[in-house]
Design a binder for these strands. Structure first.
Length: 422
RNA sequence: AGAGAGUUGGCAGAGUGGUCGAUUGCGGCGGUCUUGAAAACCGUUGACCGUGCGAGCGGUCCGGGGGUUCGAAUCCCUCACUCUCUACCA
C-alpha cells in the first residue's frame, strides 16, 4: 500500500507512476485520498481537544468524590453529557474518514520503478538477457504431455479421478524428479545464505491482506469457508508474513529466507488456451526466496536474487531469457519485476518459470514491517522470487532432453535423482 | 470435540473501577568505578495519530471488536488464540 505522505509530497510522481500501470483517472483518486486525509486530520484535531477536556473533567470528578464534595461532582458530571455526544459523533466521522483513505489506498497498485519500460501488455516487455542454446529436436519429437504418457511418469486422468483437472499425479521417476528438483533448489538457496523455513499452506485473512493477495486477488485463492482460511497461491504469503508487525534491528538485515511449498491457484477465467499438460495447474510445487532489505540496497538485492535464479537455470542447462516487465504487465504490488522464461523446444514456446520482484515498501506498509535507523522507525523493502517453480521446468527438461535412448537428466540432478535418464 | 483456566511493554510478571502507558525483576542502551572486563551502583528504555520551526504539548493503544460508566487493564457481550484435564489421533 502506498503511504498518504507519498501522495502528498510527490503527487505528480505518483500520478505518472499510476498512469504507467494503467490506473484509470489517477489524479481523481489521489485527490480523493488527499481530501479524505485532510478531513481525517481536522477531525482528529477536534476530537483530541474534546477528549482532553473530558479527561480533565473525569479526573476532577474523581478528586471531588474522594474529598466528599458530592454536589460539585454531580454538577460537573452533568456537564460531561454534551461533550460525550460530540466526541462520539466525531469518533464515528473520524473512523469513516480513515476507512475512506484506507479503501482508496488499497485499490492503488504499487508505483513502478523509473526504469520500468512503458507498455500495456506482454509484448512490451524488454528482453534483458537470452542465454543457452535452443536444442534442435528430431522430427518426431513429442511435447511433454505425450512424453509423460510414453514414460508413464505423470498421470492427469488419475488426478481427475482423485481431485479434478489441474491436479496431476506424479509417478515413479516423475515423482522422484520432482523431489530431486525441490531438494536441489533448496540446497542451492541454503548455500547462498538463505535460511530454510517450512511454513503453513493455509493462511488467515490478515496474512492474505498483508502481502496484497487481498483484496486484489480475491477469487483466485482457494478458500476454506468453515475456518476462514486461504490456501496459499505462493510461499511468499506465509514467509513474508513471518515479519508482519515486526520492527527489525539494522543488524538483522538483510533477512534471507527460502521455503518449499505446494502452491494452489484457482486460475478462474484463465482456463482455456495454453494450458495443456504442465503449463498451468491448480496445484504445483515451488521453492520461493524472500529477502527483506533496507531501502538503500534493495535494488542491489534484487540483482543478487536475479543472479541466483539465473545460476539455477544455467546449472539445469536450460535455454532461458530474462524479461524486464513493462508497467502494464507487472503485478499489482511490484515496483520492478524480472520474469524468467525457459524455452520448451517441442512446444516451441517460452514458459515463465520465475518472477523476481522488488515490492519496495508497498508490502511493508501493509505488513507494518519496519526497522530502526538513526533512532527513527521506517519501512523496509520486501523482495521475492521463484527459485524455482517446478512444472514448466519439468516440461522443458522433458521436451528439450528427449532422445531415442530416453530423457536425459541434467548432470547436476544425478545425485538427487539417483538416475541419469528416464 | 467436551469441561475449566488464561491472553498486560523485548521477556518474566504485579495490578479487579479513578491520579495506570501501567509496580517490580530480567534483558537492552548510556554512565560511574576498573589497565580492560565482570560485579556493584546511578540513569535510561514502546508503538501509532495530531499539533508545533523546535523543546514540547494533546490524543489512542493492556489479544481483536463492541458495550456499561463522568471515568475501564480492571465490569459486561462477542470473536480469535493459548494452556490444563477428558476424548480422539500421525
Amino acid at each position: 500500500m502506498l503511504t498518504v505522505a507519498l501522495l502528498k509530497e510527490n503527487k505528480d510522481l505518483v500520478i505518472s507512476g499510476l498512469r504507467k500501470k494503467f490506473v484509470a483517472q489517477p489524479e481523481q483518486i489521489v485527490d480523493q485520498v488527499l481530501e479524505a486525509d485532510s478531513r481525517r486530520r481536522t477531525l482528529q484535531f477536534e476530537l483530541d481537544g474534546i477528549l482532553s477536556e473530558s479527561n480533565q473533567k473525569a479526573k476532577q470528578i474523581g478528586e471531588l468524590m474522594k474529598s466528599g464534595q458530592k454536589e460539585a461532582a454531580e454538577k460537573l458530571r452533568a456537564e460531561t453529557a454534551a461533550s460525550k455526544e460530540t466526541s462520539k459523533a466525531l469518533q464515528e466521522q473520524l473512523q469513516q474518514a480513515e476507512s475512506e483513505v484506507q479503501a482508496l489506498l488499497v485499490k492503488l497498485p504499487n508505483l513502478p520503478h523509473h526504469s520500468v519500460p512503458e507498455g500495456r501488455s506482454a509484448e512490451d516487455n524488454v528482453v534483458v538477457l537470452e542465454k543457452g542454446e535452443k536444442p534442435t529436436l528430431a522430427a518426431d519429437a513429442l511435447p511433454h504431455w505425450d512424453l509423460i504418457k510414453k514414460y508413464d511418469i505423470i498421470d492427469f486422468e488419475l488426478g481427475n479421478k482423485i481431485t479434478g483437472a489441474g491436479f496431476p499425479v506424479y509417478k515413479n521417476k516423475g515423482a522422484r524428479i520432482q523431489r530431486a528438483l525441490i531438494q536441489f533448489f533448496l540446497d542451492q538457496a541454503v548455500e547462498a545464505g538463505y535460511m530454510e523455513v517450512q511454513v503453513p499452506i493455509f493462511v488467515n485473512e490478515d496474512s492474505a491482506y498483508g502481502t496484497g493477495q487481498l483484496p486484489d486477488k480475491d477469487g483466485q485463492m482457494y478458500y476454506a469457508t468453515e475456518d476462514n482460511l486461504y490456501v496459499i497461491p505462493t510461499a511468499e504469503v506465509p514467509i513474508t508474513n513471518i515479519y508482519r508487525d515486526v520492527i527489525l534491528k539494522s543488524e538483522d538485515l538483510p533477512i534471507k529466507n527460502v521455503g518449499y511449498t505446494p502452491c494452489f491457484r484457482r486460475e478462474a477465467g484463465s482456463w482455456g488456451a495454453d494450458v495443456r499438460g504442465l503449463n498451468r495447474l491448480h496445484q504445483f510445487d515451488k521453492v520461493e526466496i524472500v529477502q527483506i532489505a533496507t531501502p538503500e540496497n534493495s535494488y542491489e538485492v534484487l540483482l543478487e536474487m536475479r543472479n541466483h535464479i539465473q545460476g539455477l537455470l544455467e546449472q539445469l542447462e536450460l535455454p532461458f531469457r530474462i524479461l524486464h516487465l513493462c508497467g502494464g504487465d507487472m503485478s499489482f504490488t511490484s515496483a520492478l519485476t524480472y520474469d524468467f522464461e525457459v524455452y520448451s523446444a517441442a512446444q516451441k514456446k517460452w514458459l515463465e518459470v520465475s518472477s523476481v520482484s522488488n515490492f519496495e515498501s508497498y508490502q511493508a506498509n501493509r505488513l507494518k514491517l519496519r526497522y530502526k535507523a538513526e533512532g527513527k522507525t521506517q519501512l523496509l523493502h520486501t523482495l521475492n522470487g521463484s527459485a524455482l517453480a517446478l512444472p514448466r521446468i519439468l516440461a522443458a527438461l522433458l521436451e528439450n532432453n528427449q532422445s531415442p535412448e530416453g530423457i536425459m537428466i541434467p548432470k547436476v540432478l544425478h545425485r538427487y535423482t539417483g538416475f541419469d535418464k528416464i
